[in-house]
Amino acid sequence: MLFPIGNDDELSSNVCITPCICGNAKSSIDQQNQDCAMEFLQGLHDHFSAIRSQILLMEPFPSIQRIHNLVRQEEKQQEINIGTIPTIDSAAFQAFKPPSQPLGKRQRPFCEHCNKHGHTLATCYQIHGFPNT
C-alpha cells in the first residue's frame, strides 16, 4: 500500500451509531455519523485532497463505509499511476547538469592534460608533439 489510509480494523474503530428503532434520535445519530466520517477525511494524506473535496461536495453526505470505499479506489488508482511514471533522482539529475555560462560568452576549450585553456586533449602539444616548422 503506497499511501496508508488505514486497514479495516481502523475503519471499524470509527464505529458509526446505528439508528434506534423508534427514530427519535435520528438527527443526533446522523450528526455523529457525519462527525465520524469527517474525522476520517481529516486524517487522510494530502495526496487524497481531490477525492476529499469531491466527497465533501456530495449530496446527501455519504456513509463512512462509502467514503472508505471511494478512498480505497483512489489509492489503488494512484498506485497504478505512480508505477507507470519513471522517476528521476533529483540529486543524480543535478550531478549531470552542465555548468552554466554567462550569456553572450563562448566557453574556451580546456585541456585536462596540461590544465590550460585554448585547446583540448585532442590537440595538446604535450601529448601529440609540436608541429614541425
Rank of each mutant, 00 (worst) to 15 (best):
A50G: 01
P62W: 05
T87M: 12
Q42N: 15
N81F: 06
I55A: 03
Q54V: 05
F61G: 06
I21N: 11
I80K: 15
S90D: 11
Q77R: 15
C36N: 15
F93R: 04
T18I: 11
I80P: 00
K26S: 08
P62N: 03
V71L: 06
K76G: 06
Q94N: 13
E74L: 01
H45K: 07
A50V: 13
M38N: 10
P86M: 12
T87Y: 10
Q73E: 14
E59K: 15
F48C: 06
S49A: 06
P86V: 12
N81D: 13
T84Q: 15
T18A: 14
N33H: 03
E75C: 11
P62K: 04
A25F: 12
L57G: 04
R52S: 10
K76Q: 12
R66S: 10
Q94F: 13
L70H: 04
D35W: 01
I17T: 15
R66Y: 01
K26F: 07
H45C: 08
I80M: 10
S28P: 00
D35H: 05
M38A: 03
I29F: 03
S27C: 02
H68L: 00
V71N: 05
I29S: 04
Q54Y: 03
N33K: 01
Q94P: 00
L57S: 13
P86S: 14
A50Y: 09
F61L: 05
V71W: 07
T18Y: 09
Q32E: 12
A92G: 07
Q32M: 11
Q32I: 10
S28D: 13
Q32P: 00
I67Q: 04
G23S: 11
Q65D: 09
N33V: 01
Q31C: 01
F93H: 07
N81H: 09
I55H: 03
Q42E: 14
I55L: 09
I88Y: 10
Q34L: 06
I29H: 03
S27E: 14
F48N: 06
Q31T: 07
E75S: 14
T18R: 13
L56T: 07
G43Q: 08
Q32C: 07
T18D: 14
R72T: 14
C22K: 08
L57F: 03
M38Y: 10
G23W: 08
C22F: 07
K76E: 13
Q32Y: 08
I67L: 03
Q31V: 00
A25H: 15
K76M: 10
C22W: 05
R52G: 01
F40E: 02
R66L: 06
S27L: 12
I55G: 05
F48L: 11
C36R: 11
I21F: 14
A91M: 09
I82D: 07
I67A: 02
I29Y: 03
S63R: 03
Q94L: 15
C20H: 08
F40N: 00
I82G: 01
I88N: 08
I55D: 02
E39M: 05
Q78A: 08
R52Y: 09
I29K: 04
P60E: 06
V71C: 05
C36A: 14
E74M: 08
T87K: 15
I17D: 08
L70C: 04
E75I: 03
I82F: 07
R72Y: 04
F40G: 02
P60H: 08
A25Q: 13
N69P: 00
I17P: 00
Q77M: 09
